[in-house]
Design a protein around this nucleic acid. Structure first.
Lengths: 343, 343
DNA sequence: TTGTATGCGTTATCAC
DNA sequence: GTGATAACGCATACAA
């Protein structure tokens, strides 16, 4: 199949008995074209159902008006929201999006990056896979003259454009809120510490405890409690301690927090009176559990828009060299029933 | 910025004192190349950090190894899952994905399609916007020799490759199940009937009632109850009837079903004993509401994989002309507490 | 304002 | 097996 070949500017030129370059100029709305010929070209282009071949155009111009996006999973709420935000802002500027998912695997992440370099994208937006440790492929992006923007899960040591959440501050506020609600012995479910987003959340937790003179207890800090299942497992362990926690901060995700809630419910432990729970991400379901779950909103769609607009701003003043810049978005603590036991 | 220009096959050719065509052959692993030179080329390509320019390659080859995807919203669960499925299958075949969202607007959908045609994608995968009525832009895809695959929300009259859910059957089973549970006066919350997915679900509902000799009551069929808010509104109306329904089938979405549940809970109506509720889509939250919500799983990730593989199969035997084909995936009824009042 | 000529980087088609 | 050359479709520098 792939039927008849498409009409090109040459076809239009031939039909109108003018040069192909004139057609090109007319189609690209160039300044130095006769109004009459321009109209004529546009008219016949429409008649012949002409579609510009962007492959050729981009090759000639040396840019693709395309942004490549690499995320761990397309179908995770946070990431699909960020992508939607990027698409929204990019579309307005006439840019396209090529999307890849790394499946949290560094090996696939590297392949994705290479594909995008091959595709000659103008910019690569990436949020690192959980097991991403070596960042040569990111350096490779820069070496190929492609703008690199990291978001959320970033490699700190690489000086690039970054858009992140202020995880530490958000975490600090969440724990402070729980302390203000009178919770003692607040446990932390933490994520892989090689991802800075998780180490920052831990720092916020520790800082809040310090500020309010609460002891830091190792037995209340559980590693790698990322999923609902692991959150549940961690909770069973915590609640079987001689002195169980009064609250649990599932800093990894709302799914983890859900695991906490389910175990607590199953054990007949009342939330929030006997146990406080706070999650992270403001997943849709946190609003509808019983009780509803306190969590942190990351403004993910806005984050995507910010990423795209950051790129366009940098492009706008391309005369000046791009200097590394970090935009930090302040997440919002959403207080719900699961941590509200006072007024 | 866009710093130094990249290395091309000419750079490699020059360094090795051979012809560019030989380099090209070596890189594309062509059959008729000396093993020694091939190795040499690969080695220096690596040294010079060579990356193929796919823009040029694709232009020359007349194909882009790219699939364009148009969906109403990237960040809706169903669609992000389908996209993830498409990406998964495409990646394995070395294909890239360009993603656009129509925002449920036909006008934007048309622009997206045109962009994808310009980008010379090999295939366009689309799920129609709710207000999409005229399908000339779809015909345009075909006219440009691009393979068109519709999924979920399809234009029936257009003879293309299609991947759909058997909505009618799923709906029939859901209503039959509710009848078997002893529910009488089962109400239907329906979506825009210009989208076939919704009219099919209505047909399934009607067929089930007929089969079990239940009367069809217009007052129990509510139009346009797509969102949680509209589902809630519809529920308030239904429950204030002289003879309120015994169950509500929110055929539009789980969000609608959630609206039903919330209103019922607020009014002190017990689910499932006094009111049965069934949603559609198997959103994550349906599992964790109280009570959990009976719903229908659409196998959305699998659906995406099916779409992509359908394309690759058709490409595999490109000698034979593509004949319109529809793959219908059977959704699965997930029975949960909200409709279980018998054993 | 318009036409001519050239090149973007690759691959395919010839010769040799 | 290898090299020279043309062509993919478009945009631009330059000449007219």
């Amino acid at each position: 199949m792939q039927s008849k070949k498409r009409t090109t500017i040459y076809d239009i030129a031939q039909k109108l008995n003018i040069a192909a370059s004139s057609v090109s100029r007319a189609l690209s709305n160039s300044s130095h074209v006769n109004e009459a010929t321009k109209k004529l070209v546009l008219k016949t282009a429409d008649e012949l159902n002409y579609k510009r071949n962007n492959l050729a155009s981009n090759l000639r111009k040396g840019q693709s008006k395309t942004i490549g996006v690499v995320v761990p999973f397309i179908n995770q709420n946070f990431f699909s929201n960020v992508i939607a935000g990027i698409e929204d802002a990019s579309y307005q500027k006439g840019y396209n999006l090529i999307i890849c998912q790394s499946n949290e695997l560094e090996s696939k992440e590297i392949k994705c990056v290479n594909t995008l370099i091959n595709q000659h994208v103008d910019c690569i937006v990436i949020s690192l896979a959980a097991d991403s440790s070596d960042h040569r492929h990111l350096q490779n992006i820069i070496d190929n003259g492609i703008q690199l923007i990291q978001f959320d899960r970033v490699a700190d040591e690489l000086e690039t454009l970054k858009v992140i959440n202020d995880n530490e501050q958000a975490s600090f506020e969440a724990v402070s809120h729980m302390i203000a609600q009178g919770y003692k012995r607040i446990a932390l479910l933490e994520g892989p510490q090689n991802l800075h987003i998780f180490s920052q959340r831990k720092t916020g937790y520790l800082n809040a405890l310090k500020k309010f003179d609460m002891p830091i207890l190792d037995e209340l800090i559980i590693e790698n409690a990322w999923t609902k299942e692991l959150g549940a497992k961690a909770t069973r362990k915590l609640l079987s301690l001689a002195r169980p926690p009064g609250a649990i901060f599932a800093s990894t995700s709302d799914f983890s927090a859900l695991g906490v809630l389910e175990v607590a419910s199953a054990m007949g432990i009342k939330v929030p009176s006997e146990l406080g729970i706070c999650g992270y991400s403001n997943e849709a379901f946190t609003e509808i559990t019983s009780p509803s779950i306190t969590t942190i909103d990351q403004f993910s769609v806005y984050m995507g828009q910010t990423v795209a607009n950051l790129y366009f701003q940098e492009m706008a003043n391309k005369d000046t060299e791009v200097v590394p810049k970090t935009i930090s978005i302040k997440p919002k603590l959403i207080v719900r029933s699961s941590t509200l036991r006072k007024g």
